[in-house]
Amino acid sequence: MNIHEETPEDRWEVEALYDLCFAPGREALSSYRLRDGVPPVADLCLLMRDENGIVAAAIRHWPVRVGGARVLLLGPVAVHPTHQGEGLGAALIRESVARAAARGWRRVMLVGDAPYYGRFGFTRLDGVEMPPPTNPDRVLGLPLLPDAWDGVRGKVSRDAD
């Protein structure tokens, strides 16, 4: 499957995939409060379609601030249940992070499972506070440049720039 940038025409199909994978209540999560009213970083919102033209996997990224520093918030990433275990999520993570670095982003963060995201280089971020009730052990970051997380601390807030 090839990776494509999400287009406005893909929006509802991607939303349906997210609802399928995370349930409609997903928008109550703290990370969604950071996304509310803020457009995603369009050129980092990617998807893959299967041989039937159905969205098999999707990933989005959003701009946020941590203590004044601009940060890329990865997520959500979802893979249709019929395609889980095929490496599609991993391919989207790798590709989107590589594109983020090429476009000048310095750092990426997410809320997720350290054992899964650790294989992509994400580690726990000490001193970075997501809105409650986020478990601090699930707040992970990846520097796209050496030392990009050095001195970046504080509450995560919306970035409407």
Rank of each mutant, 00 (worst) to 15 (best):
P40L: 02
A58H: 09
V41T: 12
R103H: 12
P115L: 00
D19N: 13
A91S: 13
P131V: 02
L142D: 04
M109F: 04
E86C: 12
L125H: 01
P76L: 09
A58Y: 02
P39S: 14
T82Y: 02
G104V: 10
E51Y: 04
D161E: 13
V108G: 08
D147T: 04
D113K: 04
P115S: 07
Y32N: 14
V64A: 10
N2E: 14
P136T: 01
I54D: 10
G89S: 04
I3Q: 10
G87E: 00
I93A: 00
I59A: 11
S30I: 03
L47D: 09
W105S: 06
G67N: 13
R138M: 03
V128M: 01
D150H: 12
S157R: 13
W12T: 10
P81Q: 06
A56L: 08
Y117H: 07
A102I: 07
I54R: 15
S31N: 05
R153K: 14
A114E: 12
R103M: 12
A100E: 00
L29N: 09
G141S: 08
G151Q: 03
T82Q: 14
A28C: 07
L46Y: 03
K155A: 14
E129K: 03
C21A: 15
I54Y: 03
P146A: 08
G104A: 07
R106T: 13
P76V: 09
L44R: 12
G154M: 04
W149K: 02
D137E: 13
K155Y: 05
G112I: 04
A23M: 12
M130K: 00
M109H: 07
E6H: 01
D19I: 07
R11V: 13
T7E: 11
R107K: 14
H80I: 07
R60M: 10
M48A: 13
N2K: 12
A56K: 07
R99A: 11
C45Q: 11
D126T: 09
A114V: 08
V66H: 10
L46W: 01
L47V: 11
P24L: 12
H4P: 00
D147W: 06
D159A: 13
M1I: 10
A28L: 15
G89I: 01
R107W: 00
R99T: 08
M48W: 03
R106G: 15
H61A: 12
P146D: 12
L125G: 01
L142V: 02
P115C: 01
R60H: 09
W105P: 09
A28F: 09
D161V: 06
R70E: 15
E51G: 12
V41Q: 09
L74P: 10
V156F: 00
G154V: 08
P81N: 08
D147C: 09
R49T: 09
E86H: 14
A100R: 03
N52Y: 10
P39V: 11
C21Q: 03
R119C: 00
E13P: 01
L44I: 10
I93G: 01
D10L: 02
G25F: 11
G75D: 06
